[in-house]
């Protein structure tokens, strides 16, 4: 760790600075979702009964399953980081690949969920949804917006981690130089953390 070293001693490398930059970026992501959480809080306060009723439409089992999948994928990212710190390239790649598989699993389960909602006519601008009370329309508007945006973040995170996998294979990420993987992992944890909040707000709202 070069934390104690001053940035100028190694002009082209400042791991602490790189991590700081990443954390600041994560702040912007949290604020981005923060706007949606504000909207959710306000709407839920306005329509408590409708949110309760609409929440019952969601499949809590699938939601919880996805939570477990995503939490496990965060664990494997940490394990890959530990492996690279020990210089074990094979394990690093194995754990990173597991994360990718779990991330894709999450998206597959998510797509089944969305498909079911579409099938039941519960999507924005659907004729059936328009017949439901206002609060339920807003609930599904928020549901698709927030899980959709989260899904995009999952895709972004998977792309980042796939890129990291390539870098590990090429040994551009290695035992003495792994801040990129660390930052990629941080991003993946953020994706995870946001999901942890989405689960109770939507799936357990009933």
């Amino acid at each position: 760790m070069s934390d104690a070293t001053h940035a100028h001693d190694a002009v082209h490398r400042d791991d602490f600075g790189a991590r700081l930059g990443m954390w600041l970026f994560l702040v912007t992501e949290i604020v981005l979702f923060g706007g949606l959480f504000i909207a959710y809080a306000y709407m839920r306060a306005t329509y408590p009964a409708e949110f309760h009723h609409a929440g019952a439409e969601l499949n809590a089992t699938l939601g919880v399953t996805n939570t477990v999948v995503l939490l496990t994928s965060s664990l494997t990212v940490v394990l890959s980081l530990v492996a690279i710190q020990r210089g074990d390239k094979v394990k690093t790649m194995a754990f990173l690949s597991t994360t990718l598989v779990l991330g894709v699993t999450f998206l597959v389960i998510k797509s089944f969920e969305w498909a079911t909602k579409f099938h039941h006519g519960l999507y924005p601008n659907a004729p059936h949804l328009a017949t439901l009370p206002h609060g339920e329309q807003v609930f599904f508007g928020l549901y698709f917006t927030m899980t959709g945006l989260h899904g995009l973040h999952v895709i972004a995170g998977l792309s980042v981690l796939a890129y990291m996998l390539v870098k590990v294979a090429r040994e551009e990420i290695r035992q003495d130089q792994y801040v990129l993987l660390e930052n990629g992992g941080l991003y993946w944890h953020l994706v995870d953390v946001i999901w942890i909040f989405l689960l109770p707000l939507f799936y357990l709202a009933a």
């Binding site: 306005t46 328009a130 009370p133 508007g141 928020l142 698709f144």
Partner: peptide
């Protein structure tokens, strides 16, 4: 897509 969060016709504000 008409998600309705800002649209008063759909319960938005």
């Amino acid at each position: 897509f008409g998600i309705g969060i800002f649209d008063p016709a759909k319960g938005g504000d």
